[in-house]
Simulated assay, not measured.
Amino acid sequence: MSVTWYECKVKYRKTHETGEQKITTDTYLLDAVSYTEAEARITEEMKAYTSEDFRIMNIKVANFSEVHPFENSDRWFKSKVSLVAMDEESGKEKKTNMYLLVQANNVKEAFENSTLAMADTMGDYSIPAITESPILDVFPYFTGEEEQLEKFNVLETAEPAEQEN
C-alpha cells in the first residue's frame, strides 16, 4: 500500500533557546489518506508542541516516494534518485526520478544514508542531488497494530517451554 505524504506549514509562537518568543512558520511532514485527515493529524500533533494558538498556513501533497529516519540525526534532506533502465524499443537509457527524504546531520551523511536506503535496489541508479529540507519533523501514522503484530511474531517464533514431568 502506498503512502501519501503531506507537507504542513504551521505558524505559531515559539520560545527560542534565548527565552525570546517569536512567531515562526515551520514545516512538518505526515502521512494521511486525505487533506482533511492531514489537517486533523497536524492539529493533534501541534497541540503537543505548543500550548499557544497556531494556524495551519498550507497543506500540500509532498512528492516523496520513501521516508527514511536514521538514529542520531537531526536534519532532513531531500535526495533525488535517478533510476536507470534500458528502453527496449529504442535501446536508449531511460531515467526515472524519485525523491527520498532521509535523516542525517550533513550532506555527506545524507548521501550515505540515501545509498543505504537504496541498498536493496536491483537496478542501476544515481543520486544527482541532495538538498536540505525545511521539514522540521515527520509524523508517520501508527495504528498501534504494529506493536501487537511484533509481539505476535515474537510469540510465534519463540520456542515452547519444556514441561517438567
Rank of each mutant, 00 (worst) to 15 (best):
D74A: 12
T27M: 10
M57T: 12
D26H: 15
E146R: 06
S65I: 04
L100I: 03
I130Q: 00
L30F: 05
E162P: 07
V10N: 03
D74E: 12
V84Q: 11
K11Y: 04
K14D: 12
F111Q: 10
T25I: 15
A129K: 15
R75Q: 08
Y6M: 06
A48G: 04
P140A: 04
S90Q: 05
L30Y: 07
E109A: 09
R13W: 12
S73I: 03
K94G: 01
P140E: 08
E44H: 13
A161D: 10
D87H: 13
L83P: 01
A117D: 06
L30H: 05
W5N: 05
G144S: 07
Q163T: 06
T15W: 05
F152S: 12
S114Q: 03
F111M: 09
K22C: 03
D74I: 11
Y125N: 07
S82M: 14
T121V: 13
F64L: 07
Q103Y: 06
F139A: 05
N113L: 01
L116C: 09
E146V: 00
N97K: 11
G123R: 07
H68Y: 15
V81S: 01
T27H: 13
S82Y: 07
Y141A: 08
S65F: 13
M1T: 07
E17H: 11
E89T: 11
Y6H: 05
K80F: 02
L155M: 14
P134S: 14
E132I: 14
L83N: 04
T15D: 01
A40I: 05
K92F: 14
K95A: 07
K151E: 12
I127D: 07
L116G: 09
V107W: 01
A85D: 10
M98H: 07
N63Y: 09
N63I: 06
G19R: 09
V67K: 01
F142W: 11
I130N: 04
L83F: 09
I127R: 06
F70K: 09
S34L: 06
K11D: 06
N72P: 01
G123S: 11
Y141P: 00
S34W: 08
V67P: 06
K151Q: 10
L83W: 03
S114I: 03
A48K: 15
K78D: 08
N165T: 02
E112G: 00
H68F: 15
T157Y: 03
T24R: 15
F64K: 01
K151Y: 06
L155E: 14
S82P: 01
D87I: 07
I135E: 09
D74C: 11
M46C: 07
E162H: 10
A119M: 13
V84F: 04
E20F: 05
E7S: 08
A40W: 05
V61Y: 00
M86C: 07
W76P: 02
F139G: 04
